[in-house]
């Protein structure tokens, strides 16, 4: 018997599903029912003509558990394909955050200055607040949000990670 590898790995998994009622519940129920982790999960319709949605999940576990997760996802009836982007080769991962910061005076100027460094865009502003929009890796967003905290951070909304493999192949190929 092959020795068990107990190291915990983090993976980004993309799942193409039929956009039918309950499909997200099926995926989430699978994770909660079998005790798998979800660090991030995003879902949106990507092909309205075929009524297909793409779910991007970031999860972690031992290699054995990760293989289980993929196999369990793949056997859900409305699932068209499962792709382990972390294993398949290089991929692009992005997350978007909307960050609301309130304040006056120096703090307000400082938040704008940092936003500029991070290439965050101002999407709304008033005399006492900004809303920044920022896209990037999860780490970059975390750093930005941490910096905003002492400067009057009141609200954060994040999309979770979306990801796609680099190169000319699609999820099902």
């Amino acid at each position: 018997m092959a020795p068990k590898d107990l190291s915990i790995e983090r993976r980004t998994i993309a799942v193409l599903v039929d956009n039918e009622p309950g499909v997200l519940a099926r995926v989430i129920g699978l994770f909660s029912g079998r005790g798998y982790n979800i660090e991030s999960l995003t879902v949106s319709e990507v092909d309205p003509a075929r009524r297909q949605s793409r779910i991007t999940i970031i999860t972690s576990g031992t290699p054995q558990i990760l293989e289980q997760i993929k196999a369990q996802l793949d056997r859900l009836v409305p699932v068209h394909g499962v792709s382990d982007l972390s294993q398949k080769g290089p991929s692009v991962e992005r997350e978007l955050a909307l960050v609301k910061v309130i304040g006056k005076g120096n703090k307000r100027v400082e938040s704008l200055r940092i936003a500029d460094i991070f290439r965050a865009r101002v999407v709304d502003s008033g005399l006492e607040h900004f809303i920044f929009e920022m896209t990037g890796s999860t780490d970059k967003l975390n750093v930005f949000i941490d910096l905003m905290r002492p400067l009057g951070l009141v609200d954060v909304s994040r999309t979770g990670v979306v990801a796609i493999s680099r190169g000319p192949t699609g999820l099902l190929s």
Partner: peptide, 20 residues
């Protein structure tokens, strides 16, 4: 033992016991 596992359900493979 060296283990061979025949199953129609891929999620049964390596679930409890790692097979060769």
């Amino acid at each position: 033992s060296t283990k061979i596992h025949i199953d129609i359900d891929p999620s049964s493979i390596n679930k409890n016991v790692m097979v060769d």
